[in-house]
């Protein structure tokens, strides 16, 4: 049977579709094609609230980052997520997507304040809130970060916003070797610089570069760029270099997590990688096996079963 594609226009409609599919014993997938029913959030793309004074927004999960960015820019604000491409907010949360500015602003888990999800039995459940500080109840909005459609449909998301920086300056430093990369990354870590992004474009054969982004007031960004140049060497680069790192990231086969202090050994046997040395993550050409503790994987299975008793999510 060919999968049927449904595009609900409201969260309640989405819940009804899930409920109907489950009652019929059908499996549901989100956006991807491997369920009997493929649920799309294409029409769930409204901004429900943008409180500029609070630096918060609540959106439906199907809105694309570019559409949200255009809307927020009118108030001089941004959602500080810059993964490659133009994914929806829901995809960013579901796959825990981030880009170069992960270094300063964090991942979706750090920016999401609340989530409304449609669960496998068709119930609509919210957790977290729409304020920047909140510890009431379990924060299931964190649990949904990285859940890749296995716990429920992420339908609405509240996020924390940041002011758009007045100025951005980029430093590019040539990197000669793994030892050189390690020395530079450590120098940044031990300095009082506050970069927004630090990306290492690693090619063992030569041509490796470290890119450092500074944001803030015009005077603040300029002072940091000058101080960084003195500390690390290199030259100012055009902002377009960040498109290059995002392009590298989009070509990657996998993402791995590492202790920032282990950078040199990480680079030792690698022909190429896009590394975020301050964060401790690297995008590599090959798929990366899940390194989780087996006990954690068993726990995760129990969590999945608790949220999807009948295996509705494909």
């Amino acid at each position: 049977m060919a999968p049927s594609r449904v595009e609900p226009g409201t969260v309640a409609e989405a819940a009804a579709e899930v409920e109907r599919a489950r009652a019929a014993g059908l499996r549901v997938s989100i956006e991807r094609g491997d369920g009997d029913v493929v649920l799309s959030t294409r029409r769930l793309d409204r901004v429900l609230e943008h409180e500029a004074g609070d630096l918060t927004a609540t959106v439906e999960a199907g809105i694309r980052l570019s559409a949200l960015a255009a809307r927020l820019a009118q108030a001089g604000q941004m959602l500080a997520l810059d993964p490659p491409g133009d994914p929806t907010v829901g995809a960013c949360v579901a796959a825990n997507l981030s880009g170069p500015r992960r270094h300063r602003y964090g991942a979706p888990r750090d920016l999401v304040l609340g989530v409304t999800a449609v669960l496998a039995d068709g119930t609509i459940a919210s957790s977290g809130g729409k304020v920047v500080k909140n510890v009431a109840g379990y924060d299931l909005s964190k649990l949904f970060c990285g859940s890749t459609g296995t716990l429920g449909l992420i339908a609405r998301v509240s996020v924390r916003l940041h002011p758009c920086p007045q100025a951005q300056r980029t430093l590019a430093v040539d990197v000669a070797s793994a030892a050189d990369a390690t020395r530079l990354a450590l120098a940044i870590r031990l300095s009082t610089l506050e970069p927004s992004a630090v990306d290492l474009l690693w090619r063992a054969g030569g041509g490796s570069r470290l890119l450092v982004l500074f944001e803030g007031s015009a005077a603040g960004a300029a002072a940091q760029l000058a101080a960084a140049r003195e500390l690390l060497g290199g030259d100012e680069a055009d902002a377009s270099v960040w498109e290059e790192t995002r392009a590298w990231q989009s070509r990657a086969g996998g993402r791995l997590s590492f202790a920032p202090g282990d950078l040199e050994s990480l680079l030792q046997d690698r022909a190429e990688a896009l590394v975020r040395p301050g964060v401790g993550c690297a995008y590599v050409p090959e798929p990366v096996p899940d390194p989780s503790d087996p006990a954690a994987l068993r726990l995760l299975e129990r969590v999945r079963a608790a949220f999807d008793q009948r295996g509705t999510w494909a």
Partner: peptide, 9 residues
């Protein structure tokens, strides 16, 4: 010690 391991948070 690293960030962004795979799977739900």
């Amino acid at each position: 010690k690293g960030l962004d391991p795979p799977g739900p948070d």
